[in-house]
Design a binder for these strands. Sequence first.
DNA 1: ACGGTGACTAACC
DNA 2: CGGTTAGCCACCG
Length: 101
Amino acid sequence: MNSGDDFTERVLAVVEDIPAGRVMTYGDVAAAVGSRAARAVGRTMAHFGHEVPWWRVVRASGHPATGHEARALEHFREEGTPLVDGAAGIRVDLAAARYRP
DNA sequence: ACGGTGACTAACC
DNA sequence: CGGTTAGCCACCG
């Protein structure tokens, strides 16, 4: 019953380990599983993200996943995630919200 | 085995 | 700040 995909399983485990009010970048999650496939992490979220707090995973710029910014923003406000209001719109304050294991 | 693809990142102008 | 280019890695048919 092994799902067979170690990478995917590890990624989901890391995302679930992110506490509320904090976020991690795709690159950080990839590094946490011992890889640098930030893109592969994004794909994993697109397929399995419905079972994990995908909104706690953001891009290196502090913006949430492309096409899901509005949805992530609702969760950020709800969990009290540090946000920054800038010209590019609203984004997560990585300096304060980035989760460092 | 191979090429295309993507909820990405960093560098450059 | 923003738009573009190239590099990166894992999954799918």
